[in-house]
């Protein structure tokens, strides 16, 4: 009833955890039944360890939060040694999020992950707004195409390309990912934003700007998912302020084949399980046999 497919990955339900909001799953083992999650996407890993951005790294916004963590992580060697053994045992598909400073780094990371059986897929984080470089890969169709193409060459595993909302034409970028061989696109990453303490006149984030997430971005994310899914033929994974089952269903009606839960994990650590149950209840209530029947089924 709840099964969906993203590339080669068969998900028992469409609820995935968004990268960077679920750690490496172990942190949640006492708070949620990990087996019941459709797929787990890890915190983004990079080739070399990254310290991340200066403090403060988070602040609250109206119905949302800003973060500028800066992809703090221990690097791929440590990830494979310390985190992967636990992830392998969970029993839910594991998708590893990766980011690189250039195409070569994406390629090397994908090559190493390709060899590991218990990894079902790779999410290409080409849209983190908090790393210090000029523009994002996901803001340029050519660069998006090249990164995806390079990774496609080295792996047959499912590739999900995570897109940025900080663009004028989301469809163009989504098409570039599709043309380069991505199995799916996930959108959206956070919106670039900022906040200022008016008493000290200092920015509230050490990085000055950061990524806005949470319920406040949902309508914009929903519109982007709708636009992208109408214009490409690969699955779209909807992300952006999903707090409950109703939000998740809205994204699916807009065209998402699956959804990712992000900021909500910080507030209600058991929320993914509740969303799965809520979607099931919705299908029953409306006598819908397969969840696929609601995907993109917007009545206009």
């Amino acid at each position: 009833m709840m099964k969906v497919k993203i590339g080669k990955i068969k998900l028992k339900n469409p609820v995935m955890t968004a990268s960077g909001t679920f750690g490496y799953a172990k942190e949640f083992e006492k708070l949620v039944n990990l087996k019941h999650i459709g797929a787990i996407i890890t915190k983004t890993i990079t080739l070399n360890p990254r310290q991340g951005n200066p403090m403060p790294r988070i602040c609250e916004a109206s119905a949302g939060m800003l973060n500028a963590i800066g992809l703090q992580n221990e690097g791929i060697d440590n990830f494979l040694k310390e985190k992967m053994p636990y992830l392998s045992k969970i029993g839910a598909p594991i998708i590893v999020s990766i980011s690189g400073n250039n195409i070569d780094e994406f390629f090397i990371l994908a090559r190493r992950l390709d060899k590991i059986k218990s990894i079902s897929g790779i999410e290409l984080n080409i849209s983190c707004p908090n790393i210090n470089c000029e523009g994002l890969v996901a803001q340029d169709t050519k660069e998006t195409y090249e990164v995806v193409k390079a990774v496609r060459k080295i792996t047959d595993k499912t590739i999900i390309t995570k897109l940025s909302p900080n663009v004028t034409d989301i469809v163009g970028i989504a098409k570039a990912a599709e043309n380069a061989g991505s199995d799916a696109v996930s959108l959206v990453n956070t919106f670039l934003g900022m906040a200022i303490d008016i008493d000290t006149r200092k920015p509230k984030l050490g990085n000055i700007t950061g990524g806005l997430s949470g319920p406040c971005i949902k309508p914009i994310a929903l519109r982007m998912v709708y636009e992208a899914s109408k214009n490409i033929n690969i699955p779209v994974i909807g992300i952006g302020g999903i707090m409950n089952a109703n939000d998740a269903i809205e994204f699916m009606i807009a065209g998402a084949t699956a959804i990712q839960v992000g900021t909500a994990n910080f507030i209600k650590p058991g929320v993914c399980g509740k969303i799965v149950k809520g979607i099931e209840a919705y299908l029953k209530k409306h006598k819908i046999e397969k969840i696929e029947d609601i995907i993109g089924n917007l009545k206009i």
Binding site: F22, F28, G52, I58, I69
Partner: peptide, 14 residues
């Protein structure tokens, strides 16, 4: 420190 998750996931309270 300012925190979001409190369980070691968001890496906000570095």
């Amino acid at each position: 420190e300012k925190m979001a998750c409190g369980i070691g996931v968001c890496l906000g309270c570095a």
